[in-house]
Write a protein that binds this DNA or RNA. Sequence first.
DNA 1: GCTGATGAAGG
DNA 2: TCCCTTCATCAGCG
Length: 763
Amino acid sequence: MIIKPKLETDITKLYEKHWVNDFDEINTLFHKDEPKLCVLDSETTGLHIIKDKPFMWVFGWMLPKEKRTDEIKGRVFAFDSKAEILLQVIALTKKCVMTVGHNVKYDLHMLINGGISEKVVYGLKNITDTMGLCRFSFDAVSARDGGDVLGLKKVSEKYIDPKAGEFEKEVKKELRKINDAKRNILKELLKPYKGWGLGKIKEAYKVKKRNEMDYFTKEKKQRWLKVPEEIENVYFKWMEENPFADYSEVDRDIMMEYVHSDGIYTLELVEFTYPTVLKRKQKAILEQENKLIIELLKMERVGMKVDMPYLHSCFKKCEDEIQKLYEELWGIVGEYFTVSQGTVIADYFEKKLGERPETTDKSYLKKHKDDRVSQLITRLRRLEKWQSTYISRIIEVAQYDNHFYTQYGQFNTVSGRLGSDAQQFPKERILTEEGELYEKENGEGKAPIEYEIFSPRRAFIVEGGNYNKIAYFDLSQIELRAQANYTVLLKKPDLNLCRAYMPFKCTHYITGEEFRFDTKEERARWYEKKEDGTSVWLLENGESWTPTDVHSETSHNTLMALAFKCVDKYKQYEHEKESPVDEKSFKKFWRYIGKMFNFMRNYGGGAKKASEALEVSMEIANALVSGWSNTFPEVSYYQKQVAAKVQKNSYATNMYGRVYFLSNTDKAYKVGNYLVQGSCADMLKGYVIRIGEFLRENNCKTLPLANIHDELQFLVYKGEEWIFPHIKRIMEDVEWMQVPVVVDLEITETTWADKKEVQIKAA
DNA sequence: GCTGATGAAGG
DNA sequence: TCCCTTCATCAGCG
């Protein structure tokens, strides 16, 4: 059945839109057209990759160029989700050169949730994500700096059809109507209770945004409002009986008007981006990404098991602590407010100090850290953030089956890194005030468990049964190693940075040969030791090589720049006017700012920012700049070279062929970091593919579980510990890295928080 | 309602 | 010339 929707644009009218109940019409036309490019897109009940189901699909294609006319460019078919049709559609996609979807990994989840076996989906070979095509053909500018956001609506509106956003509006309107109707039920229910309307509920409980619509929660907002039990019962019961509406509740006739457009724009995006992808020679790296789609798909479906009772108990602890602190805060200030209300806080400080602060941000509060109000606000902001972002969110996501599922954004980032929400789980626990005091006196990590409010990583536990172990493979300081390697590749190796990771330009204590690192075998000798445990490689002064402590070195050179005299390196410094630096203050202060600045400067940071961020004088900040330059002269050279190259050519290419293109080269200085960050990201992506192959070839049941930038996690199947040395070998074997790559292994049989380091050798 | 600022995290 | 991100909340603007 051919659909003539009310809304058509110059772009969409060139596509024939069908609604079908079975496969016949699709099949007949497909064989008539013999397309090379097809699209698959799902409409689903929500965004949970395991719980939610597809209820409608769009399958379509673009006609081969020779078959197009002025009237028709392609065909799209919408149908209710049924496994039989999907299976036949999948068979057709295999006849195309390319099958695309926008964020296609999500649609692959929905194929599985729609009744297609995992085996069939995991076996798909010609899947390409149009988000990837966008990333590989757009400028390397992050969204923060005004670069493109890759959402289908945004991209199509900008590059394909200014009217692309119109289609969704009708459906959104309809969805809003349904949710409004549900909200009106609550309104009616609340009518008998004076003073407790919808507005008051919104003050008492947090209302989050889902699809730009109000999503009511059970989380407290303005905690001074005491909600009568009766009201709370009415409200909670309403929530249960009236769950937040999703697209499946929208009338099918209205859906039908719009579903085709997503498929059409996705096809159009291929036509728009693909020539640039080819021109920039991005086909090889695109194929890598395509392989990765399936590996990530598998990984996402494993999910991390969470300890729900623990989370619920932490929620309660957090809640009590927040309530307690708020009561103290309101008592002092004499007014009810929340800690994110900057104006109220500014009022307070204006009254107290006679001067109105411009901001009430973290740094302002830190300046008044002896003020109890300042302490309370700082602490409450942290607690509330943790409670809502970690505890509540994990509970919400994991409610379905006690697993936290994350989705990896494969093309979100400019550099090539994966994005995911698992990356922000704090490593450290949050303690009560007493606990923090205890640690101040007795050392970090020393506070006993009764002081602990919440340890995010404690919530993630092993699966159990035959999967009673999680292994974490972590790349040691990989970005700094890659940075060192880039100076080697530029034929100007940075002495200090290289010597942090290998005995660069050192000589053997017996043979006198210089350390070489051109081949794998030569490189592997960096670790060789004498019987007494010191390195066989000797520095110029005859001492055994020890890895340079790059942070101390920057601090040392900063002190030199400030005209300190070195009495004992890293330990004692004297000055004509300033007070001397002893070992303790070197460690606690100078090394700390040296470390912070090392990272800052690698990203292009300057003296002004350093002075602000590290809260030091401009004099010290300037000394850090020159201290850094003296410590890593060739890193400085590298940064200048890359920027100059980008100024000249408008692009640079990382170690895996990923191109960073800039139409406007004002921010060329950023590319130096893109190359380092992006090469490491592609390195990780490569591991995921290769380790996946290894596990398949050996019929392993161990499952890749998660990735966080420089770490890979595996859910280990009982008895398969033999693979650890192989994974380590795969990860440490990086063709282009002349600086040694080192991988550490940690294991837990209980929770993520309790992982312990294990020594192994690469196979 | 949308945007930008702010601030809590990860590397 | 401080890099890449995620997620939540609020003030200001239209």
